[in-house]
Simulated scan of single mutants.
Amino acid sequence: MKLSLSFFTGILCLLSLATFGQSISPLTKHPESGFRGLDTHGERVVWVSGTRGTVGRSTDQGKTWEWVGPKEYSDTDFRDIAVFSKNEAVIVSAGSPAVILRTVDGGKSWEQVYHNDDPEIFLNGMDFQGNRGFAIGDPIDGFFQLLQTTDRGKTWTDVSGSLLLFAEPGEVGFAASGSGLQLQGDNLWIGSGGSFAAVFRRNEKKMLMYKMLTPIISGAASQGIFSLSFWNDQIGVVVGGDYMNDQHNEHNVYLTYDGGDNWIKPIQPVGGYRSAVKYITKQRLVATGTSGTDISEDGGQHWNTISTDSFNVVGKSKSGKRVYLAGSNGQISVLLWR
């Protein structure tokens, strides 16, 4: 009976892989570093950022890489990166002091455009839409920290107090993949965890802030929403779980079809803790984490685990034909559909 069950399980897995026709292929490995920042530009440009001040840049779809991290920041963990071209990018650090650096020459030189040595500052990630962007940080004195830029990160303004990003005791953000916030259309979305797993929605036109609780597992410092992705102002997904128990897959992924007012559990969940999720198309989504990578082909209702390799972050080319994954072991891979 056990042999039969294993046999049929294997057949189903093979059929699933054949149906979706995808493969994950290694591109390069930088074993001295771990990556949590990843962004792309167009169809050919990919950048990554991570520990030990490491920044990687490829202009040929990941076939070859230049390591262009700022040498004077070799002890800094750059948890997120935003890319505007093959030469222009912004990186943000985790921990104190918090720094944001910017390059316009492909990493040959870096300019420090933000510095904060408050011992409590901890920036988790950033997101841009055109020239406008935000960076989010853990709460200080009961409010999540929020920085705003309107010039592609050349200058930053602290807008924490004006947005009323109130945090409950024990509520935090996560710097697991830089995707705990998203600037999409007229809305800024922010996910939280720890004591509460909530989604903040700030409407940029109406200047209204909403905070909506989600059913994602929470209550401990290692639990909550680690990543979110919205297709439009109504349709979105949140993923997370417990990074201390990354095989556990209950209450790790939820969907919304009404802008976060209600959250729906998928029919088939992701395979475990997931630190990053992204819409590739309206129907195709990819989620990844230290216990594996999942794909959904029906808008997030059914997820299939295609690999149990450990990754932290996911990004896509402009067309979505290439999806990139990077992880704590320095591995950078590409997910392709055949």
Rank of each mutant, 00 (worst) to 15 (best):
G271R: 03
R338G: 14
D105I: 10
G133L: 02
W263H: 02
V270F: 03
T308N: 14
F134G: 02
F20R: 10
I11S: 05
F134W: 13
S23I: 11
A82H: 05
G106I: 11
L147W: 01
G191P: 04
R152C: 09
S93M: 10
F144N: 02
I91G: 00
Q129Y: 08
R79F: 08
D233T: 12
Y243I: 12
I140T: 12
V313F: 01
T149D: 06
D158Q: 03
T157Q: 14
T288C: 08
M244T: 15
T290C: 01
E111S: 13
S74Q: 12
G42E: 08
K318Q: 15
S195M: 06
L5H: 11
T149H: 01
I267C: 00
S85V: 11
D258P: 11
G219R: 03
G300L: 08
S333A: 15
A98K: 01
Q301L: 14
I217T: 09
F84P: 09
N203C: 11
W110Q: 05
F166T: 15
K318Y: 07
Q148C: 03
T64N: 13
S6Y: 13
N116H: 07
R201C: 10
F128Y: 11
M212Q: 11
S93K: 05
W303T: 09
S49Y: 03
T293R: 02
H30N: 12
L38P: 03
R274H: 09
